[in-house]
Simulated assay, not measured.
Amino acid sequence: MTEPQVRRVRLEEGFEVQAYIYGEGDETLFLANGGPGLPSLYLREPHARLARDGWRVVAWDQLGCGASDRPQDPALWALERYVAEAEQVRAALDLGPVHLLGHSWGTWLFTEYCLTHPEQVKSCILADGACDIPHLVGELDRLRSALGAETLAMMRRHEAEGSIDHPEYQAAITILNYRHVCRLQAWPDSLTAALADWNMGPYGEMQGPNEFTYTGNMKDWNRIPAMGAIAAPCLVLCGAHDELTPACSEKMHAALPNSWLKIFEASSHMPFHEEPEAYFPAVRAFLEEVAARAAVGGLTRKSHPCR
């Protein structure tokens, strides 16, 4: 990975976040990592290769994670504040209108960003996400059920008792993670390093105690009804075995008026790590087509090369 240019950005709340810039291209791909509270390393490290194709690739450690400040105020962990943070970073770095790529929680952030700042969005890639959390909870229950009735009952008992740190509960979560988060036998160093530095404060406040339990302030969030207002071309990506399942991506794709859907058959939640030989050509094809057609009326479903 090429070493990035590192910039500190001071937010209106008085805290600082750290941004990373790869390449010097005229077109910017702006990354929003998953979590919340997960450092950007796992996402920016694989996507930095796009700088070799002439793109300027920009990521940042969201407030509360990585090299950014880590305040303790739970009131900061709200979607609307993160949207404002993303806009402050874009403006402070003078990026102009950008192409967005949000992964996991980053798809929630950038969906809301598209609705709030549409004039700053050239295109949007929503990778391994879900914009209807109640529907996602039903999908996660289905994935958990595949462990068997006895295991599912055990998990629900520990959740009700508040004893999710019990080894048998954690063993079930480990199985689910290797099935639906990353299916590689050995997880990449950038992913394990980011996971080891995960700040669970924002995560617990917004999502819950783990990837398969939603109890935080986002648990009732559903932006599917509003996504028809997103006019920018969008690419929806998903692993066939994803914890945020293909059914979630299909709902997003159906709601977006100008979108395409690509499912990676050998991947779960990290196709850029699990299946890079399929993932990056799909991303490149979309971005190149958007850029090529911007001067001739924009990209439509009919014109997209992956239709």
Score class of each variant (00 low, 15 high):
I164Y: 07
P246W: 01
Q18W: 03
A294K: 15
L287C: 04
A294P: 07
V290F: 13
S268H: 01
P233D: 00
N258E: 04
W108Y: 13
H158M: 07
A130W: 03
A172V: 13
S40H: 14
A32M: 10
A285W: 07
P276W: 01
W77K: 05
T2I: 12
L95S: 14
G14T: 01
A86R: 02
N33V: 09
R284G: 05
R293L: 15
Y169S: 09
E288F: 06
A19Y: 00
R142C: 10
T151D: 15
R81Y: 10
N222L: 04
V137D: 14
L140R: 11
G64E: 00
D73C: 01
Q185A: 15
R157V: 04
E27A: 13
A226W: 10
E3I: 03
H103N: 14
R301T: 08
A229C: 00
N210Q: 05
L115E: 10
S68M: 03
R70N: 07
N199V: 05
G129T: 09
E265N: 06
A226G: 02
S40C: 13
N258Q: 05
A196M: 11
A172E: 02
C306K: 06
G297S: 07
P209A: 11
G66A: 07
C65W: 02
L79Y: 10
Q88M: 10
D73I: 00
T107V: 06
G66C: 07
R90E: 02
M154D: 06
A78N: 12
E250W: 03
V89H: 00
A91T: 11
A186N: 14
F110P: 06
R44T: 05
S190P: 14
D61M: 02
Q207K: 11
R7F: 13
I224E: 00
R8V: 10
Y22A: 15
L76E: 04
A130Y: 09
F212C: 10
H166G: 03
G34R: 08
C65Q: 13
V89G: 01
P46K: 13
P118V: 04
G298H: 14
